[in-house]
Every structure is written in C-alpha cells, then in structure tokens.
Design a binder for these strands. Structure first.
Lengths: 254, 254
DNA sequence: CGCGAATTTGAGCCGAATCAAGCGTTGTGG
DNA sequence: CCACAACGCTTGATTCGGCTCAAATTCGCG
C-alpha cells in the first residue's frame, strides 16, 4: 500500500491546527482563537511522502521548519567518504530543521521511512509570529531542548552501555514515545531497517541481530520481522538504565 | 592563582554588553543602541567561580540561561547508579541551560574547570525581550542549533570512529573553537582532566593516554602535561575526518 | 619533602567488528 | 501462479581493538 501516489492533486493543503490530533504537541498551551488562526496561516500541509521521499536533504538552503504529522522520518548525515550516520528517527509531533537555522543550510537529510505526512512552517513568517504570540518562543525552545536531551541520552548510551543495554534503551525509548502518541507501547512495528537502527546505536547490523536474539532468549521481547512485542517492560527498562556493577545483569548473562 | 576568592565583594555586576569582547558571539548582529540597552538590563554578570564551582547543578529549578565569559565549563550528568557522563565543554561565548527550558529543571550540571566568569540571563525577562528585539529569537535558535550540530558530531565520532580518530576530532575541534575566540589554535592548555576528555569521547582514561602517545609518535602533536601543541594540522584533520577505507590511515598505522 | 591524586604503562582477556555463508522475504516477470 | 532475482537479515568463525586489572610513575599541593 505504498500508493498515495502521483494522482494526489492538491499540492498544498491549508492546515487546521485546531482539529489536528497533534495540537497538544505542536502548539503552546493557552492559545486564544485568533492566535491559532495566525499560526494556521503560516502552516502548510504538504502532500504526503512515500517511503524514501525526502522532506529536505543535507546541504539544501534552509527556509522552513517541518513537523511530522504521521509516519516516521529518518534523520541522517553522509560525510565526505560516503559514510552514513543516522542521527535519529522522528515521530508525529516532532520538529525537523532546527539545526539549520544557524547555518542557513540543512545539516542533515530527513527521509520518510513510510508514507509520511508533514507540515511546513516558513521560517521567516514563523519568526514574525514569535514576536506576536507569547509562548511560541518557549515552545520552540522546549522542542529544541528535548532534542538536546535525546542527543545526550544516545551519547551516553553509546559511550557507556553494552550492546544489549543500548538495544534496550532504543526499545524502551521508542515504546514511551509511541505511548505518548496514543499507540501501544508494548507492541509495535519498526518502520526502520535493522541497518538503520544499528547505525543509530553505534553498532554493526550483525551485532544488533545477535542482541535481538539475546533479548528474545531472555524473555524480554518477542520479534517477528518488523513487529516487536515487549514481554517484560520492567526488566527491559532495568537493562536500559543499567551499569555493570548492578547484580541483575550478571543474572541475565549467566 | 585560584584566588579570586571570598573577598570579592560585588555580588552582581551590571554588564556592559557593548564593550564585551564576546558581543559578536552573544549578540545578534545589527542591534540598535536602545536594544542593546534593553538586553544589558536583563543580563547580570555574577562573581567569577573558582575551579569546581557550579553555575548550576542537575535537578535544580530552571530560572536562567547563562553565557560563559571566560574560563571553561564542563557539562555533565550523573545517573541513578552514579555514573558520570560528560556532555561537553563550554568555552567563552557559549550558552548554557537551553535543555532546561522544556523540563523546568537543569538536566545537567555546569562546573567551572578553571576560574570562570559568566553572565546570567533571567529567562522570564529574556522571553519578553524576544518579543521586542527582532533577531534575538533567531540568535538563540542559532545557538541551540550549533549545540545540536556538535552533538551529532560527537555521536558520529563515538559511533564510527576509532580511538585515535576520536582524539584527533577532539583536538581539531577544540583548536578551531579557540582560534575563533582569538586564541592560538596550534598551542593551548587543556583545562579539563584526561579522565573527563576520555569520558566525553567514550573511552577509558588508559586508552586516551595510549592514543596521546600514538599521536606524539606519529608527529601529529606534542604534549607536555596540560599543554598541547599541534605539529601537523593537516594530517591531524585528515585523521579526524577519517574512515578505514582511506589509504593514509594504513600508512600511519604501518 | 611527602602524601594523595592523576596519569601512564604493562599484561591478558573479552566483546564486538569483520568476513563469509546461508536463509528468508519481497518484488518482478514470465 | 510460480520461478527467480535481489535484498535484508541472520548465523557462524575468526580476528583484533579497546577494556580491565594491576602496578609504576609523575604531578600537584600542603
């Protein structure tokens, strides 16, 4: 069903932020009706992307911020030697493009992993609006802050945690984010490839595969291709936040 | 000379942003005089900190953003098990506390590695000012963006690069930042311990020490305790931006 | 000068990368 | 509808880089 396709005619839909199920994530609280109207006027909903479609690509001139509405987006960079680094995966309600404001160019690419819809915020207009709507500044800084916190978490995980712990971090973190969006946190489908997850977590795909096997053996999760079922939230979270000195790890490894 | 000390009487200095050598880093361009005045009115320069003094600590209530004026600041987090993760080092002109805006609490601690002076921006007042001074929003988002880019860089380095490459990344990056501040990029003193650098770069202190030795042997740098002299910028940068498939690495290792 | 902390050095081991098949799934064309 | 090709994923065997543990050395500081 990757057929949203070429006969999708309306190129730009004017968005109703009011009725959007994501408004609690996208919008600051306590906006009055006129403010929402103003905000809506600078938000455009672009036609959905199919798998592998790009919201923007590394190096392009910066003009807009984007918010994911549905689907899942892979953020990645490719260096001079052609090596890819996956910076993260964005779910509905998450903001894309902040790191481009300073440089004037998108520093990473944002690629749909599935059919993905999203909203565009022309940055020049957004800036004007910040001066009008109190709380909008705080809101965007909040989202920037969340991104920084997430980066610190992954930095720590790759820096200090074992392979299995990193994989546990990934699943618990994804589980939490999905639950916040109203989806099941205990069973979900991975829109991204094993390759991309492994890259994000700083390991080889083979190693990720072996770690999956281990978590299955330890009765923490079940895996069926892209489908993940978390069987033991508690111990998975324990593993995710874990250091070597804690005895439970020994138990599991033994 | 760690004696800025207790008899430093003036508790809060009103700052002159105009005359500050960092203004090009701290302030948006093209501010008119009245705008600078308004900005100065919300900026306080607090008494300098000695080594090990904290600008803020993880978990404290968020109230202000801070800008480093001189010295060097270590950003770090400590988890439930007491493990420390060094998130980075802040040099003059750099902003601290952005990640606290969303959560209302400082997510990390900011500790002076040396005698360090800094400015405080009361966040509530800052927000008001954003609505008045066009360009201030862009400026802070720019700084947030820079922080995100830096996080992606370190994520990639720890994820994909070898030990020696990571150390080269650290020195070249530090060199560049110091040069921008007007210091020498080819010779400098490290204000932070080996332990902290190793932690930041996702390795053990022993491993960092061995890597230093290797870079010295390869004639890329000279090290004298805290003093670092970069002898071969070009090849150090080559190593920093490097992957295994590139032949020059083989040359150096062989 | 002497103590404690930080750093370096050494030896041995282990976890994860690499290399190489094998398997299963998906998509395509006959 | 089935055969086949292509790709993504898993599994196995081997290697090696970096960690661990332990000790020596140097540095910073009273």
């Amino acid at each position: 069903m990757t057929k949203v396709s070429s006969d999708f005619k309306v190129s730009v839909l004017q968005t109703s932020c009011r009725n959007c199920s994501l408004s609690s994530l996208c919008l600051p609280k306590d906006l009055v009706s006129t403010e929402i109207k103003e905000l809506e006027s600078i938000v455009s909903q672009l036609p959905p992307l199919n798998k592998h479609g790009h919201i923007f690509s590394q190096g392009e001139n910066f003009s807009s911020l984007y918010v994911v509405r549905s689907g899942c987006v892979k953020k990645y960079q490719v260096d001079a030697e052609g090596n890819e680094q996956v910076n993260g995966f964005s779910l509905p309600g998450e903001l894309l493009g902040i790191d481009a404001i300073g440089t004037g160019r998108y520093m990473s690419s944002a690629e749909a992993l599935d059919t993905t819809s999203y909203c565009q915020l022309k940055y020049s207009k957004f800036e004007e609006l910040c001066e009008k709507i109190p709380g909008l500044i705080k809101h965007i800084l909040k989202m920037a802050g969340q991104e920084l916190v997430a980066e610190h978490d992954i930095h720590k995980a790759i820096s200090q945690k074992s392979i299995d712990e990193r994989v546990a971090v990934f699943f618990t973190s994804l589980s939490t984010r999905l639950r916040i969006l109203g989806y099941s946190g205990s069973e979900f489908n991975l829109p991204m490839s094993r390759h991309d997850i492994a890259n994000f977590l700083g390991m080889q795909p083979e190693t990720f595969s072996r770690s999956l096997k281990k978590l299955i053996t330890d009765n923490l999760i079940d895996v069926n291709l892209k489908n993940i079922r978390i069987k033991d939230q508690d111990n998975l979270r324990l593993l995710a936040g874990h250091c070597e000195t804690c005895p439970s790890n020994k138990v599991m490894n033994g």
